[in-house]
Simulated assay, not measured.
Amino acid sequence: MTTGQGTLALVGDIGATTARLALARDGMPVPGSAARRATADHASAEALLADYLRTQDGAPRTACLAVAGPVRGGSAWMRNRGWQIGADALSAVLGLDHVTLLNDLQAQGLALDRLGAAAQDPLLAGAPEPAAARLVIGLGTGVNCAPVHVVPGAALPVVPATEGGAVALPVHDAESLALVDWLRGTAGGATVEEALSGRGLARLWRFAGGHGRLGPQDVLTEAAAGEHHAAAALALYARLLGHAARDMALAHLALGGVWLAGGLARAVAPCLRRNGFEAAFRADPLTAEIPVQVVADDAAAVLGCARLAASD
């Protein structure tokens, strides 16, 4: 069930760190309704959304919410926050007629056609193949991806859910092989997410020889100041991301383009340009012409939810 034309809907992107919320009508956020909430400040998704709705004049009857976690049977598990979110429970607590839950990368994929030039930062130029699949890769507290398939005559593209961050980290040389062994001993597994999420960047700093504990933003700051362990970690991150993004693009045959989304993607983009991302991504003939862009709009997933909420 989705909302029809003119119906007011609650839409949002509930991330492990930040929730971006709005009211939407006719497929677009209502001006002045957009807000951000720190998820750590709330005990549950119900409490977070109730707190937001208390600040709004409108009374939505439905909701379309993107969640940073897998959605199955109307329920989502946010592993990086420890929240279980159920559509029926949200409907009951918030007094809504219906709640649609989807993965946050699905919402990012639904937003691609709504992104203007200012909301996209070109990273690698290329020649997208018309009507081919596209791919969104999310980099933040976690890592995931979602392919975007255009269906002729359909109102919306098909955006299947995946758990792309849970796949094994690609091994392409002696350094990445050593990293896989190190991650198995320190993180319990060597997945794409354990190396390329925010905590993954911090781990790469320690793998490169850094001592103590730095957060991902600290690594970026130290690298900008010339600290060699942080610089080495960022160079390794760029190469690993290039290989992982290439593998994901090949798996989904995303000849229509790749978009990197999320706070970490925006933060590391300048470093990707200076390091080995391009060489790693272009290593296969099929990825040689795929353009890569960074989603500059922090609330793009909210646009995707608003689009879905208005569809018949």
Rank of each mutant, 00 (worst) to 15 (best):
A107N: 02
G198I: 04
Q56H: 00
P29G: 13
R81T: 02
L272I: 12
R246N: 05
A261P: 08
A35E: 13
D284A: 15
V180R: 11
M248N: 11
E227W: 07
G226T: 13
S311T: 13
L65M: 03
A288H: 08
R273G: 12
T2V: 12
L21M: 13
V71K: 06
N103I: 09
A190Y: 04
A131P: 02
L183F: 01
G256K: 06
A288Q: 11
G153C: 08
G27I: 08
A35M: 15
R54Q: 15
G200Y: 01
Y52K: 12
T7A: 15
A288E: 06
A306E: 09
S44W: 00
L250T: 12
V150N: 12
A168K: 04
C145I: 05
A50N: 15
A118S: 15
D57T: 14
A38D: 15
A254G: 10
P147D: 00
D218W: 04
R20A: 03
H42V: 06
A306P: 14
L204R: 07
V180F: 04
A202T: 11
A233C: 13
D51R: 06
A43S: 07
L101R: 10
L96V: 12
Q84C: 13
A233F: 09
M248D: 15
G116V: 12
L234R: 10
A34M: 14
P60L: 13
S75H: 14
A306D: 14
L101C: 00
D26M: 06
L112D: 01
G86E: 10
C64W: 10
A38H: 15
F281W: 12
H229Y: 14
E289K: 15
G86N: 05
A34N: 07
L110H: 11
L214F: 06
V93T: 14
G262R: 00
R20H: 09
G210Q: 01
R54N: 13
A265Y: 05
D113W: 05
T221I: 09
A230K: 02
V258F: 02
L220A: 07
G164V: 07
V136P: 02
A231Y: 01
A233I: 13
R184L: 07
L21Q: 12
A118Q: 15
V159A: 03
L135E: 05
G12T: 09
H98R: 11
G164Y: 01
L204S: 09
H42P: 10
V180G: 06
A225P: 12
T287K: 11
D247F: 09
G140N: 00
A166V: 09
L183M: 11
P128F: 01
G200L: 01
V192Q: 07
F277G: 12
G185R: 01
A235H: 10
V136H: 01
Q106M: 11
A117K: 09
V171M: 03
A306F: 05
A190F: 03
A254K: 13
A87D: 10
T17M: 09
A174I: 05
L94T: 05
L8W: 05
Q108D: 12
T3M: 11
Q56P: 10
W205T: 08
H229R: 13
L260G: 08
H243V: 07
N144Q: 04
V219I: 09
D104Q: 05
L49A: 04
W77M: 11
L241K: 05
A45Y: 04
L124W: 09
G142F: 10
L260M: 03
V158D: 14
R79T: 15
L21E: 11
G200H: 00
